[in-house]
Structures are given as structure tokens and as C-alpha cells.
Computed example of a mutant assay.
Amino acid sequence: MNSKSAFTFFICGIFALNVHAQTPNLQAVTDVGNTTTKSISIWNKDGLNIGVDASTGYTTVSHFLRPSPTETRTLRFDCTSTTTTGGWEFYNAVQARSVMFIKQSTGFVGIGTTDPKAKLAVNGDIYAKKVRVTPDDWPDFVFESAYELPSLQELERFIAEHKHLPGIPSAKEVSEQGLDLGQNQAKLLQKIEEMTLYLIEQHKKFVAQEETIKAQDKQFAAQEERLKELEKRIDQK
């Protein structure tokens, strides 16, 4: 092989190695169709940029799918939109409905709703084996000596006027504002504790009355014995 042929062979070999070593970029993959069986690697630190503004031909970049700069094993869904309605949506096109929506401005998560008004808003049923809430004011204060327990007469008057227990929301309030589960559990426990105190008080009165009746029974028995003794004496005379 002459020197010219050897040089040509060398250059062709280098070119062939480069062609096989190169990984097709995303544009090359999409140019040949909308699917690929090859893996796609994005090594840029900004990851995948997705434009969502149709009025600018989808050139406005407002969403990123990229690695977290603070945790290398975390994939970050980053929404840089400045609007209050922007966010991430999981959508079912077959059923034409939003499955889950995350608002970027508040971090609120909506399941079955695109306008969550709380950290988690669920438009539907929730099934769980355990729900843990942390109310701020647990009603152990009912058992403190300074707690003023309403009399049963006061309680009766309140119920007659308002048609619900003191401190418990009315049916109208629950219908309009919903129900705070943690607060409601605390209020229900407060009523149970108050009822327990009423029962204890009634039991004390019952025991006192029972002791009084027993004492009276003893007096009656003693009087009956004295009467019998008097009758014997009269009969003997």
C-alpha cells in the first residue's frame, strides 16, 4: 500500500469511528419521525426547555425539566412563569379532564381541580387508613379547676335558642365554610369531657342521696324497733 492509499484509509477510518461514536441529538431523532427506540440523553445543565406560549411560536421558555442543582439524584420540574395561573398539569386527553395541577405561584396542589385554594385540594373522595392532624388547642383545660362548666340549665337555654351545642358550628356554617377536622375533633372531645364532668357531678349527687336514704332507713328501722318495744310494754300492763 502506497503512502497516499494509507493516508486515505486512515482518514476514512477516523470518519467512520466518529460517525458510530456520535449520539444522535434530539433534532436528529425528531427529523426521522416522532418515535425512537434509542435512549435520548440531555447533558446540558438547563435540561429540556419547553415553550408554552403559542402567540410567540412556542419560543417563550417558561418550563424546564432539569437536574436539581442541590441534589444530583433529583429531577426538577421548574416553572419560571410569572403568572398566578401558571404551573404543571397532568391531563387526561381521552377523558378531557385535568388529573392533577400544581400552581407554581403558591405550590398548591389540586387533584381533580385546576384552581386549588389550599396546599392540597381534592375534588372527590379520599381513602386513607390513617389521617393525622395537629390541632393547636386540645381541650384538656376542661379538667382544670379554673374551668367554669356551664350549668345544665344554661346549656338547655342555649340549645333551645341556637339549635346546636355551644362551640360547635351550626349546619349553616358547615354548609358555607366546610369543616376543620382537627378543630372539630377537639370541640367534640371538649363536649365529651364536659359530659363526663356532668356525669361525675350527677353521680356524686346520687351517692349523697343514696347515703341520705340509707341513713333515713336506719332511723326508720330504729323508730320501728322503739315502737315495737313500747307496744310490748303496753301489752304487758
Rank of each mutant, 00 (worst) to 15 (best):
L179M: 14
K45T: 08
K228D: 11
V29E: 07
P67T: 05
S145F: 00
S145D: 13
G178M: 01
K38H: 04
C79D: 12
S3M: 14
N92A: 09
P116D: 13
N44T: 10
K119T: 02
K163H: 09
W138I: 14
D235T: 01
Q219M: 03
K191P: 01
L197V: 03
T59I: 14
V99Q: 11
L179S: 12
V133F: 13
Y91S: 15
K191V: 01
H20M: 05
L48A: 13
V52T: 11
L65P: 11
D136N: 14
K45C: 02
N49I: 05
D53C: 06
E161K: 15
V142R: 03
Q209R: 07
V142L: 06
E176V: 08
V61G: 00
T30V: 15
G87Y: 01
E89S: 12
H164S: 05
P169M: 07
I40V: 13
V122A: 04
T36A: 14
Q27M: 02
I234G: 03
F10L: 15
G124S: 12
L48I: 14
K129H: 09
L189K: 10
S151P: 00
I159M: 15
Q95D: 12
L65E: 02
L230Y: 12
S62L: 08
I111S: 03
N184M: 11
I168P: 03
D235H: 03
L152Y: 00
I14L: 13
E201Q: 10
P169N: 02
S68C: 13
N123E: 09
I213N: 14
F9W: 04
F77M: 07
Y127D: 15
T35N: 12
L120F: 14
N18M: 11
T36H: 09
E161G: 08
L17D: 03
K237A: 10
E225R: 15
K38M: 04
L199V: 02
N123D: 13
E210N: 10
L65D: 07
T56H: 04
V174T: 09
D53S: 13
I159Y: 10
R226V: 06
R226H: 08
T85N: 11
P67M: 09
F101L: 08
S68G: 03
G182A: 07
K129L: 04
T59E: 09
W138N: 01
H20V: 09
T84D: 14
D53G: 05
V61M: 10
M195V: 03
G112V: 15
E224G: 00
A160L: 04
E225L: 10
Q27P: 00
E201I: 02
L75A: 04
I14T: 08
K172A: 11
M195C: 01
L75M: 10
Y58R: 08
F101A: 08
E144H: 12
A221F: 04
A28K: 12
L149S: 08
P166F: 00
Y147D: 02
Q202P: 00
K45Q: 15
S151D: 13
G33C: 08
A128N: 05
W43V: 03
Q219C: 00
A16M: 11
F141C: 06
F77E: 11
D235N: 14
E225D: 04
M100G: 04
F15S: 12
L155P: 00
G178C: 03
H63R: 04
G86I: 06
R157S: 07
Q209N: 08
S170P: 02
L179R: 12
T60L: 08
Q190D: 12
G167M: 08
T74Y: 06
